[in-house]
Simulated scan of single mutants.
Amino acid sequence: MSNFQFGVNLGFATKRWPEPEAWTALVRETLDLRLVQFTFDLLDPWWPEADRRLLAQKTRRAAEAAGVTIHSAFVGLASYTYNGLLHPEPAGHRAGLEWWRRAVETAAELGATAVGGPLGGMSVRSFQNEERDRLYPRLLEDVCSISEWAAAAGLQELLIEPTPLVREIPHQVDDSLQLLADLKDKTATPVRYVLDVGHALYRPLYGADASLDPWLEALGEHIGVFHLQNTDFQSDSHWGWPDPRGCFDVAAFAQTLRRHRLTDRPIFLEVFYPFELADAALLENITQSVEHCRRLLG
């Protein structure tokens, strides 16, 4: 038997079940799960501090009462739309760094042990003008600062998610390794990666023979969690099961993790739905998706 830790990213609850008592009930009673990754789409670190703390405390109490563990707090769809730490304008960059400071505080207030997400994206102009060499040292300083804030707040990990976009850092195995090397012995908390299967297997960037093996062989010991989604390998789909468009094999994924001896890393189902989708249809799909993944993970 495997010892997979399986949970769900709360992205599915965005705009529908923001009340902590509502999503905790869904997680425990409908999905029969005890582990979640919180999304900042449910509680934005930018909100006024007093209100943010009030809502975070309420969320923490609701999770504890329901027996739900908030493993980590993660960048959501809203914050991912910004350039973040790679914003080309100094003022935009300062705002991105301040967002992370507040995100660390919010994660700690929620009772999470880790905070994370993609770091940011270069603008088209920055990328075309080959400004990576200018922006990268600043990014390293930022990650070190965030790790110091995380350690001071009592968090145990900073989770960075590689994305399949060449304007983002990191976006491939080589620059993921380089980032780790450049941060070695410089961070106050461990930096680990979030490996999203839909990102790592994105064929338009990584080729028709894209595989998880290069990622796991190079970064295995540095992977903190996995994101699981159904995909056609041609888009960052984040579909559930069943979906006629998707062809991701969860059983094969489980076998791959066993082969690489990575069964002890948490796996979070991360599915996003159109806001116009009927609530009942979403609940049916997220429930079936959880059951599908749980069964095939073993």
Results as ranks from 00 to 15, higher is better:
37 Q>R: 08
212 L>F: 12
273 Y>R: 04
110 L>T: 04
143 V>T: 04
209 D>E: 14
99 W>Y: 13
6 F>Y: 14
151 A>S: 15
289 S>G: 02
3 N>V: 06
103 A>S: 09
259 R>K: 11
218 A>F: 03
33 L>T: 09
238 H>F: 10
52 R>S: 11
278 A>N: 13
98 E>M: 03
240 G>K: 07
208 A>R: 13
97 L>Y: 05
209 D>A: 14
163 T>C: 09
192 R>W: 00
59 T>A: 15
206 Y>E: 06
40 F>P: 00
230 N>Q: 15
109 E>F: 04
289 S>R: 07
144 C>S: 14
149 W>F: 13
242 P>M: 06
130 E>W: 10
17 W>P: 00
285 N>P: 01
38 F>D: 02
15 K>E: 15
101 R>A: 11
271 V>G: 03
235 S>H: 11
147 S>Y: 04
58 K>E: 15
78 A>Y: 12
87 H>W: 01
294 R>Y: 06
112 A>L: 00
180 L>C: 02
132 R>L: 12
163 T>Q: 15
5 Q>M: 10
11 G>N: 12
235 S>D: 14
48 P>G: 09
258 R>V: 13
35 L>W: 02
39 T>W: 00
38 F>G: 05
248 F>N: 02
46 W>K: 13
100 W>E: 00
58 K>W: 08
151 A>D: 11
249 D>H: 12
89 E>I: 04
196 D>P: 01
156 Q>W: 00
13 A>E: 04
167 R>P: 08
72 S>W: 06
201 L>Q: 05
241 W>P: 01
95 A>T: 11
163 T>R: 12
224 G>A: 14
19 E>L: 13
70 I>V: 14
176 S>F: 06
288 Q>N: 08
25 A>S: 15
15 K>G: 05
129 N>L: 14
181 A>E: 15
208 A>V: 15
226 F>W: 08
88 P>T: 07
103 A>G: 11
266 P>S: 02
195 L>E: 05
240 G>T: 09
122 M>P: 03
289 S>F: 07
280 A>Y: 06
118 P>K: 02
60 R>N: 00
236 D>R: 01
197 V>F: 01
249 D>R: 07
155 L>E: 06
70 I>M: 03
32 D>S: 13
272 F>Y: 10
207 G>K: 02
86 L>R: 01
151 A>F: 03
267 I>S: 10
105 E>L: 10
48 P>L: 05
